[in-house]
Design a protein around this nucleic acid. Sequence first.
DNA 1: CTATGATGTCATCAACTGATGACTTCTGAC
DNA 2: GTCAGAAGTCATCAGTTGATGACATCATAG
Lengths: 205, 205
Amino acid sequence: MTGARSLGEAAPPRRRDAAATRQALLTAAQDRFGQKGYESTTTREIGEAAGVDPALIARYFGSKADLYLAAVAAERLDADATVQPDRTDAPFDDLAQVIQVVMQRTARLGPGPTLQALVRDDTPEEIRVAAAARLARRLVAPVAEEFAAAGADRPELRAQVAVAALLGVALGRSMGWFDELRAVDPDEIAALVVETLHMGESAGT
Amino acid sequence: MTGARSLGEAAPPRRRDAAATRQALLTAAQDRFGQKGYESTTTREIGEAAGVDPALIARYFGSKADLYLAAVAAERLDADATVQPDRTDAPFDDLAQVIQVVMQRTARLGPGPTLQALVRDDTPEEIRVAAAARLARRLVAPVAEEFAAAGADRPELRAQVAVAALLGVALGRSMGWFDELRAVDPDEIAALVVETLHMGESAGT
DNA sequence: CTATGATGTCATCAACTGATGACTTCTGAC
DNA sequence: GTCAGAAGTCATCAGTTGATGACATCATAG
């Protein structure tokens, strides 16, 4: 009977399950690394959050740094991350969508491992490079295309500035830099950022 | 002849000088904390950078945290920081000036201890609060006044968003998130940010 | 049932950190 | 000159961290 079990059904409660343990570690790592970054998150803390012995990090991922890399790779950075959790790699359409999704995600889950890696220079170089490349491909590239299509000059630079500015707002909100910024609704602030960052008639030559 | 020495001239080379030692520690702390933040900067590293025994941190500042607080307090966050290093507490006139000064300073000196404290949640709470309060008073307040004078709605929130966005760009540039952003001239990017963030005709009702 | 590999537990190591206090060396007043 | 205090040096402590390998326990094929 165990052979024909639908995919969504609860897995058999094996008392030892390597896949489940690995996933628990990865999820805990995404959460902790995403909140506190690389250096200030300890392997013991991750193990406790996952309900698992920290030594298993070495078994399943190799090292703390490798676990962080896995956490970055597993982070969703696409258009449908919020709406359709099962569909992956849906590219963004425009800056407005990027803004909305980023603000919603950081409001729910905190900065996340990718943003934390970018912001802290104590993160191992390899991780920082991977995080930056990922962000450039998933967030900056679509926005740059949009700017280029609109005929703006320096579309690539403008996209990089826009994304950096967006990340600053997202970071400032989730870390509570200022009172009103911390308290405001994610959608409302997304709208305000869209209004502010939208390259209007002044974007051209 | 030593009695009438102009201010810029080299100080008398006392082999032991508490004030000079204290200042060396403070300067080294501003540099290191400003580059790597609180946790990942060690007292031994600061001592080495200052050419001084790390134990003197305890003597002159009390503790590592107290030294960080002194570094935040000593950081210039005013309009004339770049132009007139001796005059202090000159308030900013408008958002454009804030943008220009912040971009120039972070390009020369890196993020700085205040921004690092805000960005990292491993910084002691007391330091984070002090840094946020300082930034709110020195950067956000003038911009909010400008927005309010221009008749924009939610001037306080808009100012907080604008400053957070600016800090994102400054951080992204000095930490090298993206290629063009890293390579661009500080003044040029300041102009681009001014153009992008300037609340034009759409700021009103 | 039993043997074997997979899975999980535990103690421990070496490196590093901030802090501390005893100690030495210098400076300036008298 | 000398002496008291200021300034600087040094060894060391207790705590924490990531990593490691020996060991214990479980699941399952045969």
